[in-house]
Design a protein around this nucleic acid. Structure first.
Lengths: 234, 234
DNA sequence: GGTGATAAATTTGTTAGACAGGTTCGATGC
DNA sequence: GCATCGAACCTGTCTAACAAATTTATCACC
């Protein structure tokens, strides 16, 4: 970034790059917890940027819990137990990356279905039904269909009554949204929609019947089917 | 924050508060995706702060993927699929909160053990063994013991060969660290260390034997035991 | 009235300087 | 050695200016 006095290509923002640099060094252990970062002034000299840019970068990693600052003293690397942010890269890199994220999501989707079957209220159930109906009604399988599909999963996570499931599953769904969309836009086969909807219907039925194990099983089969259908594309 | 020209009590930093305000409004849907935030200038007037503080706040939510900015145009609320950050609160609020996070962690720990048993290398196994030995050697059950315990779980997640497991499980472990420490400092019973270590040994043995189902079962029993031991304290 | 080019206004990105508030360190006195 | 004070240092905030990019308004021409 010392090469240019304005926004550089790539990530674009100087503050972005400095935050990434600092974050990567902290996460890699290059700065042990408790150690003091270089001062804003020396960082601005090191990177050849203004103090404002350094402050914006530090503000970012501060909000992630990676560092704490003490006015008059300095900025210190925080202990890993204070980290409050789990971050994904800007986009999923390749097919292996997608599968790895699916692999993380899978046990959570099963548990989500299980808990939803155990705990859902009539209200939760109505919302799951509506999400299911929206999926049936979706005219564009790659756009509305993807959103409706993720909404179905999200309503199930909401029915767990555990806010962490609701939030984290929504987060994972968002991260996978474009991947799922791309996979579907390449698959013109109309029976895929039908299969997916019938798989969802099985999950919904198990949740209606308050049967956790059936819900988890139906979800497991759905995800396996979805993975296979997606693999057929790669 | 218009009440004071310096850092305010509570969260302390003006940029913190504005970032939280904006973030909360975006997450709640008050600003639909694609909509343009007020300009930096008008936000600085609205909150009675300098443009620098507003920029620091926006820099934060930008790095979370909540907004994107276009020079000369404005700052726009991003689509939820671009979010790249999953955040926890600064600390776990109460026992119910802790249980909810344990509930999220549980299926992941089981899957982690399963995958580790299936995929571990000799190197992974050696590191798991070392983490296990460190736990046996720990003289302070509430300090070193907690760190060694979490390290054991972390090495298992590393043995999945899936970076998302390694990262997210470390993140969850970090978030629970202080809670586990507090729970242990109140329990002076020496047999708890012994039980925990023997539960870990069962997990380790299953991973050694490349037996995914035994590993998951041993992990399940360990987590249930840990939850009960922790509930005895509350 | 419509279109295209240009200028002006607007907005984000960055730099620089100043001041406020808090911390650390060194010097001094007891 | 300990307590106090002042200076130096460092983060938090504010202000002003300029650079770069975008949007809007104006003008000339058809």
């Amino acid at each position: 970034m010392a090469q240019s006095k304005s926004a550089t290509p790539g990530r674009g923002m100087l503050a972005d790059e400095i935050a990434d640099y600092l974050s990567a060094n902290i996460r890699s252990g290059a700065f042990a917890h408790g150690t003091k970062l270089p001062t804003e002034h020396s960082l601005s000299e090191q990177f050849g940027v203004s103090r404002t840019v350094v402050r914006e970068a530090i503000s970012r990693i501060k909000s992630d819990g990676l560092v704490t600052s003490r006015q008059g003293s300095g900025v210190y690397v925080a202990h890993s137990s204070t980290r409050r942010s789990f971050k994904l890269g800007e986009s999923l890199v390749d097919a292996a990356d997608v599968l790895a994220l699916f692999e993380l999501r899978q046990p959570l989707e099963l548990a989500s279905a299980r808990l939803a079957a155990a705990r859902r209220t009539e209200e939760h159930l109505e919302r799951i039904r509506q999400a299911h109906a929206a999926m049936e009604d979706s005219s564009d399988w790659s756009e509305e269909g993807v959103i409706a599909d993720l909404a179905f999963h999200h309503e199930i996570a909401m029915a767990t009554g555990n806010g962490y499931y609701a939030d984290f599953m929504a987060f994972l769904g968002g991260a996978l949204q474009n991947t799922i969309r791309a996979a579907r836009s390449g698959s013109g086969r109309p029976e895929i929609k039908k299969i997916t909807i019938s798989e969802h219907a099985r999950i919904l039925a198990a949740i209606e019947q308050r049967d956790p194990e059936s819900a988890a099983m139906a979800m497991s089969m759905h995800l396996q089917g979805a993975r296979e259908r997606m693999s057929d594309k790669t």
